[in-house]
């Protein structure tokens, strides 16, 4: 099965130019995202700003509007200190626990997503620039890609079956986007709530009737690296509004 997936991968045409999920939205939804007041995701950006000051991030980083400009666009990165790939959420939580002595936030906690949204928001408009400049990163990227192209779940669908092969086609009333990650955390109208990339990946697993990887499985980092690097060059849109 795996060999077949790799063969299919080799046979597939070169990856199309990345297109943001924004371009697959209805004009009304685009207008909501572009509205600097009414974009509901900004509620969590505000919450993140409050936490930034309250939890003491300012002690090292000062005003995030300057110090965090462009930072989020490079994540996930390789950390020599920790000898592993680190996503933006993990870096924020590492700072909180190691440097500020706070309790770690549970995965998917609203405060975690709010901080993530606040940090990513500082890079809004800058191009996503995930570097794949060392073997650990290229290997992880390859593992993430393999995961992306591997069918799973009761529906036996790979991520790529929707977001590569059928991009731009309809799935019932929805237009399938490329599944780019440049707007995360997103305000999703279906959830009426903010969600990190982690939450979206879980939702996609549920949609193809598959169990998501275990929380401590390193494939989470591999997949996030692959997804973010896939959108290299697209502008960061956090907080994006999606259906």
């Amino acid at each position: 099965m795996r060999a077949l997936a790799v063969l299919l991968l080799l046979a597939a045409p070169a990856q199309a130019e990345p297109v943001s999920g924004y371009d697959f939205l209805m004009p009304e939804t685009q207008a909501l995202q572009d509205d600097d007041f009414a974009n509901p995701g900004l509620l969590w950006v505000d919450q993140g700003a409050a936490l930034w000051a309250q939890e003491g991030c300012t002690g090292c980083h000062g005003d995030a509007t300057g110090s965090m400009r462009g930072v989020g666009a490079h994540y996930p990165v390789w950390s020599d200190e920790r000898d592993r790939i680190v996503t933006i959420d993990e870096q924020i939580d590492y700072c909180r626990t190691e440097r500020l002595g706070l309790d770690p936030l549970p995965r998917g906690a609203t405060d975690m997503t709010a901080l993530d949204a606040y940090v990513m928001h500082q890079s809004r408009g800058l191009p996503v620039a995930v570097a794949l400049d060392r073997p650990e990163l290229t290997e992880a990227h390859a593992r993430g890609e393999e995961y992306y192209y591997t069918p799973r779940g009761q529906l036996d669908l790979a991520c790529a079956d929707c977001h590569v092969t059928n991009e731009g086609m309809r799935l019932r009333g929805e237009v399938l986007s490329q599944g780019q990650a440049n707007g995360f955390p997103i305000y999703r109208q279906l959830w009426q709530d903010i969600g990190s990339l982690d939450r979206m990946i879980r939702w996609c697993h549920e949609s193809v009737r598959a169990a998501p990887p275990a929380d401590d499985d390193p494939v989470w980092e591999d997949l996030e690296l692959y997804l973010r690097a896939r959108g290299n060059g697209l502008p960061v849109e956090t907080p994006a509004v999606r259906r």
Partner: peptide, 9 residues
């Protein structure tokens, strides 16, 4: 005037 509140409703 615009006013918004974070609430799950």
């Amino acid at each position: 005037i615009r006013a918004m509140i974070m609430h799950p409703m």
